[in-house]
Every structure is written in C-alpha cells, then in structure tokens.
Design a protein around this nucleic acid. Structure first.
Lengths: 189, 189
DNA sequence: TGCGGTTTCCTAATGCCTTTAGGCAAACCA
DNA sequence: TGGTTTGCCTAAAGGCATTAGGAAACCGCA
C-alpha cells in the first residue's frame, strides 16, 4: 500500500484548514486521519496526542497573526498603524475562524513563552510609540488594546453583533477612532 | 433502589458547579451522572442531550451575571457605575471560571434572544446615560465596553497577564479610568 | 390500604473518538 | 540487492453520547 507521506508539518497545516472549515472544537485526530485517508492510529507517530495537535495549530495561528501584524505595522505609525493592526486581527478572525479560536487555546507557561505570543505584545508596544504615553502606563495600554481587539473579534465571531444595526464594520472603525483618541489623551493618574 | 431525585434544575446547577471545578469543556453528561451516583443514560429524561446541558448552564451564567450587574448599577451613575459594573464581570469570571466560559457558549438566535443576553446590553446602555453620547454613538460604545470587559477577563483567565508586572488589578483600574475618560471625551465623527 | 398508572432510573447496545502495542511492507542506503 | 529503518496497518481497551426497552418506586384514588 502506497504511503500517504504524513509529516507533523503537513498534519498541522491540514488541521488548521480543518479548523477553519468545521471549527476548532471539531478538530480531531480521527477527522484529520480521514482527510489523509489513513487510520487514526497512524498519526501517533507524528503527533504525541490530540492536545499536541491542537497546541501546534495554536502556535501556527499565533505566528501567522504576528507575521501579518508585523507586515501591517511596517512603514506606518500613529492612528494609521493602530487601524492597520486592528484590521489584521479582525480580518484574520473572519477569514480563519478556526485558526483564530486555536490562537486562544490554553498553552502551558513555557510553550506560551516560546510562542509568537510575546511578539504580539511587542507589536502592540510598537504602536504605542506613535503616542505619548509614560512608560508606567504602557503595559496598561497594551492590555487594553489586546482586550479590545480580542474581545470585539471574539464577540463578533460568536455572532454577538450579527443581527443588529449598525453594521459591525462601522462599529469597528468608530472603536478604532475612539482608541486613537484615548491614546492621544491618556488620562493622568 | 432509592431514587436520586434528579431534576433539570438540580442537574444544571450541579453542572455549573462542575464547570467551575474542572472547566466548562470537561462538563460531560457522564461526569455529571457520576456526581449524582447515577448512570449517564438516566440524565436523558431531564436533558435533551449534551448540548442542551451546556446551553442551560450558559443561560444560568448569563442570568447570574446580569443580576449582579443590575445590583451593581443600582444607585450609581457615571464612573462609579462603570467601575462597579466592570468589577462584576471580572469578579464573576475569577470566582466562576467555568460559568463564565459557559456564558460564551454559542447559542442559536432564538435562544440568545430569549436569554439574559439582551439585559447585558440594556445594562451597558444604562451606564452610558451617565455620559453625554449622541444616540448614534451609543451602540458603538456599548460594543466597545462589552469588548473590553470580555476581552480583558478572557485574556486574564487564560493566564495572559499572569506572570508579568504590573499587577492585573492595577491594569484593570487604570483601564476603567481610561474608559471613563474616553466616554467623557468621545471623539466626534 | 391496596391498585393502576406514571415516572424514574437501570441494563443493554451501538457508534465514534483516543491511545497503545505489535506487525508487515515499502523505502532508503550501503 | 539485502538489511535496516520507518510508516502505516490491525487489534484492542477504555471513554463519552445516545437510544430502546424494562423494572422498581412513587402517587393518587378507590
């Protein structure tokens, strides 16, 4: 019988596609095996277990997202950078719902530290360079931005804003406006 | 054999406790049955299926959260209301992680409409009465607040801010300060 | 008090998913 | 080309979800 040519790499990539198609929760070793026309047990030479698969998909998503974020920030600053970065998040989540969910998959401390997660923080900090925040407020602002981006996108893809006016895109741009304004007028303690 | 006295009510309540103890994802018909010293099949006279169980836990959490939010808003306005409401979210999520996750469980449109979800929107709108926003901006502001609250709490309980200074509580109060400031100086279009 | 009806929980069974163990054959490499 | 490695397979055990059908407990009424 001809070999399927499985590799961890290919499995993770296919797993990410599967996640986008059927949802991250439904990404299963069995389903992935089916997609390669192979028995589930065969995947265990390439993946430690089901959690390992999901973790790897999460790492892939975090990296893709950071890469796109970095691209978006290149050559931009201030509000332009803020808006471009925000759009990267939203667009990614809408285009790749499964991967985006995966990016929220809980990682243990060391895996998280070695992931692209910290790059996200760095990128957000880079945005703040276009504004005049005291060092002591930077972390708070980073956390605020992260919360808004993640919170909005997560509520939106859960259908939170689906059936009500105004359009979600409109809120998104207004929220970016508001954040820009806030960063320019960050309140003193 | 003595009867266990199962009811949908008791099952959902126990399911919520279970969620807080072991995580919403691990809430399973089997695990719940074990907790009542009963066979899994026995739960199916009280619950349609596993999804039904999770949905009911989600509805319970949404209601508890809305109740607490309403309490927090009673007799307060402006920044005081904003801060109290924000704390309700954070405190609830920290005290009841499983329930909080449940509150994010995707509901179909009609279930969502009949849930306490809309009350959350109403409560958030009530906070805005303490600020001077044009009607056309209200929905955007509601969405922003919802995003920040949910986003922050969700990142925090995922351990996002766990091992880094400054303290998460400090960021939280600073973020509430910032939101208050933003609402008082909402940018014109 | 005892009887029928209803309700509640049980056993049994199926199907799908995860994971481990051990085997055979294809691919590589010398 | 023969030996070795590696890749995918079969087999099997254990878990959760769910349905069908049975028996015992409970409840109301005569």
């Amino acid at each position: 019988m001809a070999r399927a040519g499985l590799t961890t790499e290919r499995l993770v990539r296919a797993g990410a596609e599967l996640a986008d198609e059927v949802g991250f929760e439904q990404v299963t070793v069995s389903a992935l095996a089916r997609r390669f026309d192979v028995k589930a047990a065969s995947l265990y030479s390439h993946l430690r277990n089901s959690r390992d698969l999901k973790t790897r998909i999460a790492l892939l998503a975090l990296e893709e997202l950071a890469d796109r974020g970095a691209d978006a920030l290149a050559g931009r600053s201030g509000k332009e950078a803020l808006g471009a970065f925000a759009d990267v998040y939203r667009d990614y989540a809408l285009a790749h719902p499964g991967r985006y969910t995966a990016a929220r998959y809980p990682l243990d401390a060391e895996t998280a530290a070695a992931s692209a997660g910290p790059r996200h923080t760095q990128l957000t900090r880079a945005i703040l360079r276009g504004y005049d925040l005291p060092e002591s407020e930077q972390t708070h602002a980073v956390r605020l931005l992260g919360s808004v981006f993640h919170g909005y996108v997560s509520l939106e893809s859960a259908g939170g804003f689906a059936h009500s006016a105004p359009d979600s895109r409109e809120s998104w741009t207004r929220i970016v406006d508001a954040l820009d304004s806030l960063l320019r007028n960050w309140p003193a303690r």
